Amino acid sequence: MLLQDEQYVVKWLSQYGALPKTQITRMLQKPAQTADKILRNLKKQMRIADVSSGYYIGLDAMDKPDQRTILAVWVLLKFIDYVDPMAHYPAVYPSQLFFLKENTGYEIVVLYEGEQNLLKLLQPQEDLKYIIVLPRISMAYGMRLPHAPCLFATVDFQGDEEPGVTFYSEEAVSDDEISGHVG
């Protein structure tokens, strides 16, 4: 029988595929030593395996990390203190991830260059907000947004183990006030 935290790790990896070890450690919300012990126990039980020399962890050593999902998880981690460990899961395309925070649903949509038209596929619902992750915030100009509250984010890897995530309000983008970002 797996312990509660071990069950969380197995569930997350079954939902999202291989994830960076750093993300799993952060999602556990435990001290690094405790998280390492949880992961060691799961490896010993052959429930999880190192992927790409241990940078990623998956259910199987052959798991392929999905970069869109990984970007979405970095954004999720900015809210992790307010999200129950089982209150996030894969979303319906073109979104990558759905999570509940204070009875409001959020979908994280990761778009690459030239994919702005994918927003037309979103199905806005009451009490649902979107976080649109872009490679650079200038992509947001002129974007046709769904009829739902939207927040923009960029994930900036500066060589650190954990990237910086910057949030921008819909108003800041539409008012050309990129310097007025939040987060």
Rank of each mutant, 00 (worst) to 15 (best):
T104M: 00
V109M: 01
G54D: 00
V10N: 03
N41E: 14
G105A: 09
Y56V: 03
R40S: 09
V75R: 06
R47M: 11
N41I: 07
I38W: 04
W12P: 02
Q33A: 14
F99I: 05
W12Q: 02
N103A: 06
F79P: 00
L28F: 08
M86G: 12
V51F: 01
S53K: 14
G58K: 03
L39P: 04
P94S: 01
Q15E: 15
G54K: 04
T34K: 15
L59A: 05
F99E: 07
Q29R: 12
V109N: 05
I24H: 06
K21E: 12
Y82T: 07
L100E: 14
G17W: 02
L19K: 06
V9W: 07
L77V: 10
K44G: 05
Q23C: 08
V9P: 03
S14E: 14
F98L: 15
P90I: 02
Q96M: 08
R47F: 09
I108R: 04
M46N: 15
D81R: 12
K43I: 01
S53T: 08
P31R: 11
S95M: 08
P90K: 06
L13S: 03
K11G: 05
A61L: 11
S95H: 00
A18R: 04
A61K: 12
K101I: 07
E107Y: 15
P20C: 01
M46S: 13
